[in-house]
Design a protein around this nucleic acid. Structure first.
Length: 651
DNA sequence: TTTAGGG
DNA sequence: CCCTAAA
């Protein structure tokens, strides 16, 4: 039986930024290894008072009440896991890694399944009550049409269902391109909804949720009514006749729009219930004002972002309409992205690689003043607690923003910045950190530390050891680790094998001390040996004998026959070592004992006899370098070589 | 894939 | 030890 691991991507955001932010968030489920991982989006706002943060950190604070305040602050992505008790627990690094990978491969991964069902559950975390949208999905892929439909009969939606004239939209895949659920419609009648520029229906559609009142009992609706409801909800016409599907999609649209704490409704037992006052979701005008008043020159982050948002969303989606926005947009955006991921022709959710690369580019563009933008961009998200990043228009004193806007296919997509490096294990409890805003210095320090940890050999080795020796880590978190280490020759009991054999084989007996040898992932994804593994006398002897037996140049043969038990020595390594030995032999032969003499060398010198043998072999095989052979080939005796090259004569 | 050589 | 051209 598969262990169920639910992962939530926490998105902390302003309601004014909600739209583009959540747009980039998908709802997915995937089977990874033996775990089913479900990724959902969750959004909530932060306390305005705590939102004034300098630097790149934004606290994750409590939610619901803060929505009423005008917050102009960035967004933070947070990955948490919902444990069995419904509590939010920080996602471990491995979880984050997995999710990142999932998000990265969302388009080609066949197992990636868009979420189809959803339930709601409230989670308490650090005394912070949050409404979590928990998505559950069956194993089958894309069984949207047959998935059980939530009990819609009890659905109590405040919306009414207007029917909008809209050019026929054939593809159901586009349905929720723009989910428009105006829960707080009373105060937002004039709200303009995002419309993807790619919409065949044109960009002038605007949902009219002002007429949405009372309850909706989808069960009692006919197919046609459902289609109309669908259209009203999503702004698209649909030709789908499947009632279940329609109900489900509509419900999802409503749910996704409502079930965030930024709205006044939550979904409980498949029923939309009012959670707070409608005034919570009042329109936010900050963006407009910021945009119009401050314009491009606005250096305020809020203005910058608003500018950005408007540029993408409004320009693309709205035809000259006003630009009021609300948290709903953000909630809806979840749906948007979800759909986008399923559609092929539409704006696609950028892959992680794309995000990273663009992020770096933008980082350079926007923060040239920073000493090392590249580095910063890579380290910025090293800390799993908060992930923030300035957007393009940030000025020197601007507050950094967390996401950046990208126009993919014309529809604004807020792309979260993602760390390129793998983080070390995150804090067990990050909530306090998020609440108590750490200083920028603290943050950067921790980020750097994390970055170091990510590449540090000790850290990795420690983890490897843990992997081998103990099974104390929580079960599934080891899975990715193991997978990551699969290619390493030293894992998976390699040491044990060697310990058993090295005595009788008298080979590679120094393997016990190779603790610092570890493979580290390369940028290209390959594995690279991080630390130098000293050549032992044993290995050198084997090498020399191998050369004597098979001839220099037959490195593969030597490797296969003489170094079979030393998997870490590749043929290239043998070749390199031989090259060094060759060099050393000719250097040291003139004064063999000089080397052995008290020279303060860091490593043990290669015994002179070995070097002599090396030189002999080289001579036999015509490997004597011409530059050396001139002075030495005739007479094997003495010829002075510069001592500074004698380094190669050491192990 | 292996080899040779430069970095 | 890494990378890569060349075989």
């Amino acid at each position: 039986m598969q262990q169920l691991v639910r992962l939530l991507v926490l998105i902390l955001m302003l309601k004014s930024l909600a739209g583009p932010c959540l747009r980039s968030c998908g709802i997915q489920s995937v089977v990874y290894k033996s775990y089913e991982i479900r990724v959902a989006c969750y959004a909530y706002a932060m306390e305005a008072s705590e939102a004034k943060i300098e630097g790149s950190v934004v606290p994750v604070t409590n939610t619901i009440g803060a929505l009423e305040k005008e917050i102009a602050d960035p967004i933070v992505y947070q990955l948490v896991r919902v444990d069995g008790n419904g509590r939010l627990v920080p996602a471990t690094e491995d979880e984050i890694m997995v999710v990142e990978d999932l998000l990265e491969d969302d388009e080609c991964e066949p197992k990636l399944v868009p979420d189809t069902r959803q339930i709601s559950e409230s989670c308490k975390s650090e005394g912070c009550l949050m409404e979590i949208n928990s998505f559950q999905i069956p194993e089958e892929k894309s069984n949207v049409l047959v998935d059980p439909v939530p009990d819609l009969g009890k659905m109590d939606a405040p919306e009414k269902v207007p029917v909008h004239g809209l050019a026929p939209f054939s593809e159901l895949s586009d349905i929720d391109q723009s989910v428009r659920t105006e829960v707080c419609s009373h105060s937002q009648d004039a709200l303009n909804e995002d419309m993807p520029s790619t919409s065949a229906a044109g960009s002038s559609w605007k949902p009219d949720f002002s007429k949405l009142e009372g309850k909706i009992c989808l069960d009692s609706l006919t197919v046609k009514e459902l289609q109309e409801t669908f259209k009203a909800t999503f702004g698209r016409e649909t030709s789908v006749k499947d009632k279940q599907w329609l109900k489900r999609r509509i419900t999802m649209g409503l749910t996704n729009s409502c079930d965030f704490s930024c709205t006044s409704f939550i979904i409980r037992d498949n029923v939309v219930v009012k959670k707070g006052e409608e005034r919570i979701c009042h329109p936010v005008k900050s963006r407009i004002s910021a945009d119009s008043e401050d314009g491009v020159a606005n250096s305020d982050s809020r203005g910058s972002l608003g500018d950005h948002d408007n540029r993408i969303n409004d320009d693309a989606d709205l035809s000259g309409a006003d630009v009021s926005s609300s948290a709903f947009e953000g909630c809806n955006a979840t749906k948007d992205l979800y759909t986008e991921q399923r559609t092929t022709k539409r704006a696609r959710k950028p892959t992680k690689r794309y995000i990273e690369e663009l992020s770096e580019i933008e980082s350079r563009e926007s923060s040239e003043k920073l000493a090392s933008p590249d580095k910063i961009s890579r380290y910025r998200f090293a800390c799993p607690e908060t992930h923030m990043r300035p957007t393009k228009n940030v000025r020197s004193n601007a507050r950094p923003l967390v996401t950046r806007q990208d126009s993919l296919g014309g529809s604004g997509v807020q792309i979260p910045f993602v760390s390129r490096i793998r983080r070390s294990r995150p804090r067990e409890n990050f909530m306090p950190l998020l609440k108590l805003q750490p200083s920028g210095m603290d943050m950067s320090t921790r980020q750097v530390r994390s970055a170091v940890d990510a590449s540090g050999p000790q850290e990795a080795d420690k983890r490897n050891n843990d992997l081998i020796k103990t099974s104390s880590s929580p079960g599934w978190t080891q899975q990715p680790l193991t997978a990551a280490c699969e290619k390493d020759e030293h894992f998976s009991g390699m040491k044990i094998v060697e310990l058993e054999n090295d005595v009788e084989l008298n080979e590679c007996s120094e393997d016990n001390s190779d603790d610092n040898v570890v493979t580290v992932p390369t940028q290209k994804g390959g594995m690279r040996r991080k630390h130098h593994r000293p050549w032992t006398i044993n290995e050198v002897v084997k090498l020399v004998e191998g050369v004597a037996r098979y001839g220099a140049g037959r490195w593969s043969e030597i490797k296969r026959l003489a170094f079979a038990s030393c998997p870490y020595r590749t043929s290239v390594d043998l070749k390199d070592k031989w090259r060094n030995l060759l060099k050393a032999s000719f250097v040291q032969l003139p004064s063999e004992k000089g080397i052995l003499n008290s020279r303060k060398q860091a490593s043990v010198p290669i015994p002179a006899p070995i070097l002599s043998r090396v030189r002999e072999l080289a001579d036999m095989q015509g490997q004597i370098p011409p530059v050396l052979s001139i002075g030495k080939s005739s007479g094997h005796s003495s010829s002075d070589r510069s001592v500074h090259e004698a380094r190669s004569g050491f192990l």
